[in-house]
Write a protein that binds this DNA or RNA. Sequence first.
DNA 1: GGCTCCTTGATTGGCGCCAATTTTCCTGAC
DNA 2: GTCAGGAAAATTGGCGCCAATCAAGGAGCC
Lengths: 215, 215
Amino acid sequence: MEQAITRPGLGAERARYLAQRMERDIGLGDLGPGAWLKQVDLEQRYGATRMEVRQALDRLVEKGLVKHLARRGYRVEDFDPDRLAQIMQIRAALEVEAAAMVIHRLEEATLAAMAAQAERYRVALDEGTVEEHEEANLEFHRLMLSPCPNRELVKLLFDLRTRVPVAVTRRRNSLGVLRRAAEHHFEMVRLIRAGDLPALQRLMREHNLSPSPEA
Amino acid sequence: MEQAITRPGLGAERARYLAQRMERDIGLGDLGPGAWLKQVDLEQRYGATRMEVRQALDRLVEKGLVKHLARRGYRVEDFDPDRLAQIMQIRAALEVEAAAMVIHRLEEATLAAMAAQAERYRVALDEGTVEEHEEANLEFHRLMLSPCPNRELVKLLFDLRTRVPVAVTRRRNSLGVLRRAAEHHFEMVRLIRAGDLPALQRLMREHNLSPSPEA
DNA sequence: GGCTCCTTGATTGGCGCCAATTTTCCTGAC
DNA sequence: GTCAGGAAAATTGGCGCCAATCAAGGAGCC
């Protein structure tokens, strides 16, 4: 089994954390679409109690990652391309909104850190694991949104992110498309430095809506 | 106690439904900010089991309507104006996005129904109860979004709606502001008929961001 | 009178057991 | 060989009980 949960706290908090780990495992393809999530298996795999597993599953159902069939169990939903495209459209709209709020709030130190993550992302495309690659991407966007005063928006954006499994993205996009997404990151930094909001917003939209729903 | 839940189905579904009812009661002010939500009380009030109550509370915590204090209980969050403003900004951005998708998909019959609800809303402002008033508003927007192909976006918009208690809105806004919001509804119908997307989008944004976060 | 400590009562939170239901597998007939 | 029927195992889902903890109230002390 994976590393057991050793976090302190109440069951509810631990269930939240467990749900995050399951999201990640589903996203990375460890738990593929159609897979049955048997409660006993999950207990063992994550070292959690029955109740925590149930709460986590319930949360995943809420997010649409998992489907619940009465007295049959929980099954990983297959990833409907239409639905994923819809989520990407939402993300695009919100990233455009966020862009206007951060473009004049980002400091040079943060921009430099963003550029570093952009580089890490680009390199990881060829050499790194999917996890590292994804983490660089996540960190880039976390940095970019860090000065956004609308924390609800930021929270929602990261929540939406977990609803689009990376495995799917990766499967559907050629390496070339991913490379282009990598270049977008550098372009974002450049446009923020230039203070060109309209161009940045166009780029954010394209970055999300282009064949690559990633990043 | 209120009408007990008589719905069929598993506990999980019933808990979802219970959470909706509690959202509504919180939104309408029946359960004000700071109120302690004792599990036994809720059991009796809604005729639900302990487990259903717990699941529902957990969901409300997730939505930020309720705060959980370890071994103390659940308490209705006070409505931070900043946070509400942030949610309204998200709604505004998404409504603008949705406007582009529905403006050429709305049929005359639906527009007529929208106008009827707009009228009902305006009348209810003076004569109706808060519930009726709110229902007309909800129905207007439901009709407007009905031809939107991005169902995820629609679902999210209605979800965001429940996070802004009507009671707060009503308290913070003068009747004049609400009347202006009512006129917005008629203006929306007019702009959709005219096919004027830019103006519609400006209006949607204003409708959400103006002193009245309502509607 | 006011402060502290302790007992009492109330509430939350979790664990374990068991009923209901589904799936699997075995048996037997055609 | 295949299909139907039925027993057995596995799985979910819910309910009740109880420990842990917290708030309230009262007794005793300063």
